[in-house]
Simulated scan of single mutants.
Amino acid sequence: MSTTPSPGDLPVRRIDRILAFMSLGLLVLSIACFFAIMIASGSGMKQADFGDGIWPIVSLVVYVAPPIAFVLLLTLLIMTFVRRARANKGR
């Protein structure tokens, strides 16, 4: 497989990779926190124990990370569409 881009392709910028990996990382973190809550609930932890320690932060990550990841992904898509439109307009 060739690693050199064809003349019609736009190069992948650093900001594109950062946004993509941040979005993916937030989704993976959210899923891991969700499973941690499920495992802790199934192992016999009482509801009162979820108010102490790191559990409030874990619960917050489950609710906040997916919308932030979605916004990052939309930002990446919009930036890509604008860049392609500008590149096609210049040709």
Rank of each mutant, 00 (worst) to 15 (best):
S2E: 01
S2M: 03
T4I: 06
P5V: 00
G8M: 14
G8Y: 13
D9Y: 02
D9G: 02
L10A: 10
L10M: 07
P11A: 01
V12S: 10
R13H: 13
R13L: 15
R14V: 11
R14T: 09
I15W: 14
D16M: 10
D16V: 06
I18D: 08
I18G: 04
I18T: 09
L19I: 03
M22P: 05
S23Y: 04
S23C: 09
L24V: 13
G25V: 02
G25I: 00
G25D: 04
L27Y: 06
L27S: 06
L27H: 03
L27D: 09
V28N: 05
L29E: 04
L29F: 11
L29K: 01
S30A: 15
I31A: 15
A32F: 11
C33V: 03
C33A: 12
F35S: 12
F35V: 15
F35N: 10
I37N: 11
M38W: 08
M38I: 13
M38L: 15
I39Q: 02
I39T: 07
I39R: 02
A40T: 02
S41C: 11
S41R: 10
S41T: 11
G42M: 10
S43A: 13
S43L: 06
S43Y: 02
G44P: 00
G44A: 01
M45Q: 02
M45I: 03
M45K: 01
M45F: 04
K46F: 00
K46W: 00
A48G: 01
A48M: 00
D49Y: 01
F50V: 03
F50I: 00
F50L: 03
D52W: 12
D52H: 15
D52P: 07
I54A: 15
I54F: 13
I57W: 10
S59W: 09
S59I: 12
V62K: 03
V62D: 05
V62Y: 07
Y63F: 13
V64C: 11
A65K: 03
A65I: 03
P66C: 01
P66W: 02
I68R: 03
I68L: 14
I68V: 15
A69W: 04
F70G: 11
F70W: 08
V71M: 10
V71K: 05
V71H: 02
V71D: 05
L72C: 10
L74M: 14
T75W: 08
T75P: 08
L77Y: 11
L77D: 07
I78N: 07
I78V: 14
I78E: 07
I78D: 06
M79R: 13
T80E: 14
V82W: 07
V82I: 12
R83E: 04
R83T: 03
R84S: 12
R86D: 10
R86H: 04
A87K: 05
K89A: 15
K89G: 14
R91W: 09
